[in-house]
């Protein structure tokens, strides 16, 4: 089977991997000039289904809990199996109770346990939550390494605007273009996210730390070499423009609240992206003729791409419906 995959974000590359494993001849085309043009490049890379469940449906756990082992199998060494730490400033400590009302997979941790997990946070928080089963990865390194791996398995890559057209020599097309598929999938909407990279030698964290705040919940993900990704806003908007001053103030305030030494950190990068989502904020596979759309991964790209990619491959290799294709979803919600 010859398959054209449109979109070289996390969804497109994960689908490419699953198809190539099943023996397909795959070409990945993206209208950008290289990797890194879409929302995936701005991702947090947290493989944190239990934390995400706080604001999402149970499917996020069902589909996401195998993600860390998928990434670890595909790109050995890329995943950090260190869990997630959730902390709240003393004033908002009761919010921890709220946070876990909708989820599982955590243990309450004391000030001493927080210090044992993250020595640099010693004395800063009295109570927190530890999600031991969760993991994280560096999304940019993951995308780059996955591209290299796919190329070594014979996947062709075609970058640039010229690759917009001509799918006639392929048996199937998988469209993973996110918001660019809006015309075909009118229910898609964009949720703008803004994030920044900080660098400081003064703080060391081993795992993503989520700071609970009733107004500005924020996470900080260590990327190694004193670099930290701070994210991310959630704004109902498909505006791709640069981050707003207010969003930066909120993100920086949160970083400062986690550790005052972040005040002296250098800002390496400010970025924004638009996450594609369906009205229920859950992903789906939509088949239209030769094309299967894999879209709506929302804020869960790296977490849900493995499961969606497997389902997409199954859809292409059988006529059976995957559990996330459109007909099935309509039946479930009927």
């Amino acid at each position: 089977m010859h398959v054209l995959i449109r979109g070289a974000g996390v969804a497109g590359l994960a689908v490419a991997y699953e198809l190539v494993q099943r023996g397909a001849a795959v070409t990945v085309a993206d209208t950008a000039s290289s990797l890194g043009a879409g929302a995936s490049w701005c991702a947090g890379g947290m493989l944190a289904p239990y934390c995400e469940r706080e604001s999402a449906e149970e499917d996020v756990i069902t589909l996401g809990k195998g993600a860390a082992s998928w990434w670890d199998r595909v790109l050995p060494g890329i995943v950090n199996f260190k869990g997630t730490l959730v902390v709240a400033p003393p004033r908002n400590a009761f919010e921890l109770k709220h946070f876990v009302a909708r989820t599982t997979g955590y243990a309450a941790v004391s000030a001493e346990e927080i210090a044992a997990l993250e020595p640099d946070l010693d004395g800063r928080f009295q109570a927190g939550l530890f999600f031991a089963e969760e993991a994280h990865l560096d999304p940019r390194a993951a995308l780059e390494k996955l591209q290299v791996k796919l190329a070594s398995k014979g996947v062709q890559f075609a970058f640039g605007p010229a690759n917009e057209t001509d799918h006639t020599c392929f048996d199937r097309v998988v469209d993973c273009t996110g918001m660019a598929a809006k015309t075909a999938l009118p229910q898609l909407r964009g949720i703008r996210g803004e994030m920044l990279y900080l660098e400081t030698p003064e703080i060391t964290l081993s795992r993503p730390v989520r700071l609970i705040h009733p107004r500005f919940p924020v996470y900080i993900v260590p990327r190694g070499n004193g670099r930290f990704m701070v994210g991310a806003t959630m704004i109902e908007s498909d505006d791709e423009g640069p981050p707003s001053a207010r969003s930066l103030v909120e993100l920086l305030n949160a970083a400062y609240a986690l550790h005052p030494a972040f005040a002296e950190a250098r800002i390496l990068e400010l970025s924004s992206g638009v996450r594609p989502a369906f009205p229920d904020n859950l992903p789906r596979i939509v088949e239209r003729g030769v094309t299967a759309y894999v879209n709506g991964l929302y804020r869960h790209g790296f977490l849900l791409a493995p499961a969606l990619a497997r389902q997409a491959a199954e859809v292409l290799y059988s006529n059976e419906e995957a559990s996330f294709n459109e007909a099935d979803r309509q039946r479930r919600t009927a």
């Binding site: 909407r189 703008r192 908007s237």
Partner: peptide, 16 residues
Amino acid sequence: RREGARSGSGGDFWKL
């Protein structure tokens, strides 16, 4: 305020 700071970019949500 936030969604529409730039030329009504929150249109999809508003339509919902």
